[in-house]
């Protein structure tokens, strides 16, 4: 083999080798790389018990209950399969609304309610002007217009 060819093979082998090693490492860390659990995963008991974790889902329309005169709020998060109730006391992000993707950080209490210490809004990959969003809502007959 010419030295140049040898170096080419070496470089390709470095990339492939490091790629495979990284692939295995990421597979092993899969669980830790998940930023949040879905309500279904929570119902199946996947998150570690007694520890803080994140749950993410869509806010069920009509489930938001605000306490009069306080910051306390409770709402349901759903992945259209299972629902988990979240209780939170604090300021909600601008994008928080019914039907919006939300990630809450906290832990489960004894009554099956998720007590959140932090609530973040997850925006989606759709970008459109309000008129288009309205038109889409009318077509789909959604009751939760933006």
């Amino acid at each position: 083999m010419k030295p140049r060819r040898q170096r080419l093979v070496l470089v390709v082998m470095i990339v492939v080798g490091v790629g495979i090693a990284t692939g295995f490492a990421l597979r092993a860390l899969q669980e830790n790389l998940l930023y949040f659990y879905s309500p279904t995963q929570v119902a199946e008991g996947e998150p570690p018990e007694g520890r803080k974790f994140r749950v993410g889902g869509l806010v069920t329309p009509g489930s938001v209950n605000r306490t009069e005169g306080a910051l306390d709020v409770s709402f349901d998060l759903t992945d259209n399969n299972t629902t988990v109730t979240v209780a939170y006391a604090g300021i909600l992000p601008d994008l928080f609304r019914e039907g919006q993707g939300i990630i809450a950080h906290g832990r489960m209490n004894g009554d099956g309610v998720f007590v959140a210490e932090e609530v973040l809004a997850k925006h989606d990959e759709n970008y459109m002007p309000p008129e288009v969003a309205e038109a889409l809502d009318q077509v789909h007959g959604k009751d939760s217009g933006p």
Binding site: D94, L120, H123
Partner: peptide, 12 residues
């Protein structure tokens, strides 16, 4: 900060 509610998160 305004949209998510945080400057930084350790997501992937």
């Amino acid at each position: 900060k305004p949209m998510w509610g945080t400057w930084w998160v350790w997501d992937a």
